[in-house]
């Protein structure tokens, strides 16, 4: 067996994982009509075991998308509506005094975070203290209350939403917390043809019921195959140069980066691209990450990690514009032909 045979997943493994992931994707596309790119990005985020921040106006189907994802994966699902008076204990759980057999003990009552798929709705409406409680759980995948550490179920995904309007009384997520999200995906408005389809096929807008597309073993098999998806040095080098190129002090920085970016992406951004690109490659039926996979995931993985200066806000330049500029400016190979 060659090194490549030992390293790469076999065509059969990849085909099976792709088929399973494809079934999930089909289910998501049935749930959210006309949003194929969004559903693909959400699935890629989940397969990469990352958390996804969805930003969009109310009523675009974000909650239905997350519910559908949980159902298709056969995982437990909780929804948590973030409000200014939400306390950390409301998320993580708390110890309550219980009387058992005539004795009173503090018993830990797990909060809604103890689930596989958590929908953190309007996450920017909670106080920073509450947000940080969730974000700690997202990073560590465990919760510590009164000195006791409680691991979260595996897999654990947080799909948070935030509303780009009605910003009064909100607490925008700081950059350090945004960095915890693998992807920040914008939920676009649907087209008129999609709306027509929703009106004709969905009574009262109810999404179709889903049965799990795969079981726990199937999901584990996907993750196992994903672990073996290869990231070549050439592609890794390009990812590194892209992330380096988002820093205004870098030699690779484009004019746009130098003009508008205050701070570039962190190494976590490079890791996020690599992991997401692996999932993207597997969804495309490949055992290895290609430059096209990196290009597909770079914008949602990097745009929210860039800290732009006031000029960008004044001129309406967004993080995604900067990432697109960086992708265009940095060639895949440092060598010229």
């Amino acid at each position: 067996m060659t090194t490549a045979e030992a390293t790469l997943p076999s065509p059969a493994e990849v085909a099976k994982a792709r088929e399973s992931a494809g079934a999930i994707l089909d289910g998501l596309n049935r749930t959210l009509l006309g949003q194929e790119e969004l559903t693909r990005r959400v699935l890629v985020g989940c397969l990469a075991r990352g958390h996804v921040l969805l930003e969009g106006l109310p009523g675009l189907g974000k909650t239905e998308l997350v519910k559908g994802l949980a159902a298709l994966l056969g995982l437990s699902f909780r929804r948590l509506q973030f409000t200014p008076d939400l306390m950390p204990g409301d998320i993580t759980g708390a110890h309550v005094l219980e009387q058992t057999d005539g004795r009173r003990n503090f018993v830990f009552r797990p909060g809604p975070v103890f689930t596989n798929v958590l929908l953190a709705d309007e996450i920017n409406r909670a106080s920073p203290k509450t947000q940080s409680a969730l974000l700690e759980a997202m990073a560590e995948r465990r919760v510590t209350v009164l000195g006791e550490t409680h691991p979260l179920p595996s897999p654990f995904f947080v799909l948070a939403t935030q509303n780009p309007i009605e910003l009064e009384g909100t607490y925008p997520l700081p950059e350090a917390q945004l960095d915890r999200f693998l992807f920040k995906v914008e939920v676009p408005a649907v087209s008129s043809s999609t709306l027509e389809q929703i009106l004709t096929t969905r009574r009262a807008g109810r999404a179709p019921e889903h049965r799990p597309a795969i079981d726990a073993a199937g999901l584990d098999a996907i993750f196992a195959t994903l672990e073996r998806v290869h990231l070549s040095r050439a592609v890794a080098g390009w990812i590194s140069r892209i992330v380096e190129g988002t820093h205004p002090t870098s030699a690779h920085a484009s004019a746009k980066v130098k003009a508008y970016v205050k701070h570039g992406a962190s190494p976590r951004g490079a890791i996020a691209i690599a992991e997401a690109a692996r999932a993207q490659a597997l969804l495309s039926g490949k055992p290895t990450v290609g430059f096209d996979d990196v290009r597909a995931v770079a914008t949602p993985a990097l745009a929210h990690r860039l800290v732009l200066d006031y000029r960008a806000r004044l001129e309406g330049v967004r993080g995604s514009d900067i990432v697109q500029d960086v992708l265009a400016a940095i060639p895949e190979s440092p060598e010229r032909v």
Binding site: A4, L8, P287, T288, G290
Partner: peptide, 20 residues
Amino acid sequence: VHADASGFVVTEDELGQSSW
């Protein structure tokens, strides 16, 4: 990059031949 940017070529360059 000039084939389809799929990563197959760079992977074979790095790992050698395989069933892919």
